[in-house]
Amino acid sequence: MSRIAYVNGRYRNLRDACVNVEDRGYQFADGVYEVCEVRGRKLVDFPRHMARLQRSLRELRIAEPMPLSALGIVMREVVRRNRVIYGLVYLQVTRGVARRDHAFPPTTVKPSIVVTARPLNYAKNQQTAANGIKVVTVPENRWPRVDIKSVSLLPNVLAKQEAREKGAYEAWYVGSDGFITEGASSNAWIVTKDGRVVTRSAESGILAGITRAVLMEVMEALQIRLEERPFTPAEAREAAEAFVTSASQIVMPVVAIDGQIVGNGRPGAVARRLREEFHRFSAFS
């Protein structure tokens, strides 16, 4: 079956879907994106993703391409046309097509929008979680506005590639202050030996992950202690557990950091429970 994409008002076969060469997303990475989990053919935590999309657009002064209700219809239709039961739907909005000039184009230029969807292998994802993943640390080299979910992801690409070349699944950024910020495509967490879950505050230095926000509600309901504070690579390596969160990975246990085993080298009980309970607290639409 051919994959279907939505591009600026039309549903097209993926092989025929394209944007103008002067789209500012291509020329300047002048755009934002969101990725929603699809589970049982439904979008997971769609309202939270749309609220973050609106914030990202406001921060970059890009107009909303359509009302959120219409955007939801488009995203669900792309999921339906691609027959995705379990997977991801990707949404990208750029400032639009205009003659190449660094300054904003006239306000008459309409934003461009692209929506795609693809299935994920549920069994493989579960097996990865059962085994746990390895991470490596890399120096923070991104622009300061990582709170905006922009398409400017080249530093993340380089970090992820370094992780792959070192036999790891994910990279954790370390800031100039010596503290871990977040992963190349995830939020970073540890569990102390006395059972406290620690992650950096989303007030600065990281993206406010949607999975992260929902997981905090899970921990409150389960009466798991949470601390929002920075932590160092050394503290992470000596932690009882570690894990990452994102829309594609939910809660993914970390079993090694920079080649050093975390805990007993197996996914920890806290991470496993949070993963099992997560979708009881998610919104499906």
Score class of each variant (00 low, 15 high):
114 V>A: 13
99 R>G: 15
66 M>D: 01
65 P>A: 01
162 E>G: 01
135 V>E: 12
74 V>H: 02
268 G>T: 05
170 E>A: 10
282 S>W: 04
69 S>N: 07
10 R>V: 10
29 A>N: 03
75 M>R: 06
99 R>A: 11
243 F>D: 05
20 N>W: 04
9 G>R: 07
115 V>K: 03
100 R>P: 00
64 E>A: 15
275 R>V: 03
250 I>C: 10
51 A>E: 15
11 Y>S: 13
114 V>Q: 07
261 I>W: 10
25 G>C: 00
43 L>H: 00
13 N>W: 07
106 P>R: 02
118 R>N: 07
82 N>Y: 04
277 E>T: 05
118 R>S: 02
138 V>Q: 10
195 G>V: 08
215 L>I: 09
243 F>Q: 10
90 Y>M: 05
128 T>Q: 15
136 V>S: 05
9 G>H: 03
62 I>V: 14
31 G>V: 06
181 T>D: 03
251 V>G: 02
19 V>F: 14
71 L>I: 14
22 E>Q: 11
199 T>F: 04
193 K>T: 00
206 I>F: 08
28 F>G: 05
62 I>K: 03
19 V>G: 03
266 R>F: 15
228 E>V: 03
111 P>T: 06
148 I>P: 07
31 G>D: 01
271 A>T: 04
132 G>H: 01
197 V>C: 13
217 E>I: 08
114 V>C: 11
285 S>L: 14
192 T>A: 14
260 Q>S: 14
74 V>T: 11
87 G>P: 10
106 P>K: 08
18 C>F: 00
79 V>D: 03
277 E>R: 11
42 K>Y: 06
1 M>Q: 09
173 Y>G: 08
92 Q>M: 12
88 L>V: 14
52 R>P: 02
15 R>S: 13
88 L>M: 14
267 P>A: 10
236 A>K: 09
229 R>H: 03
151 V>N: 08
114 V>E: 07
30 D>C: 09
129 A>W: 04
162 E>L: 14
13 N>I: 10
190 I>S: 08
116 T>P: 03
42 K>E: 13
60 L>G: 01
50 M>E: 15
266 R>M: 15
176 S>L: 05
207 L>F: 09
163 A>K: 01
63 A>R: 11
152 S>K: 11
232 T>Q: 11
65 P>M: 05
268 G>D: 04
256 A>Y: 09
265 G>H: 07
264 N>C: 02
43 L>W: 01
51 A>V: 09
225 R>M: 13
3 R>N: 15
88 L>Q: 12
107 T>F: 00
148 I>V: 12
166 K>Q: 14
75 M>W: 05
152 S>A: 15
124 K>P: 00
277 E>V: 12
171 A>F: 12
177 D>R: 07
23 D>S: 07
194 D>C: 07
228 E>N: 01
77 E>A: 06
160 K>S: 13
171 A>M: 08
190 I>D: 06
138 V>T: 10
204 S>H: 14
222 L>Y: 01
212 R>G: 01
27 Q>V: 15
79 V>E: 10
169 Y>K: 02
36 C>R: 09
279 H>I: 01
69 S>W: 13
123 A>T: 15
130 A>M: 12
80 R>N: 05
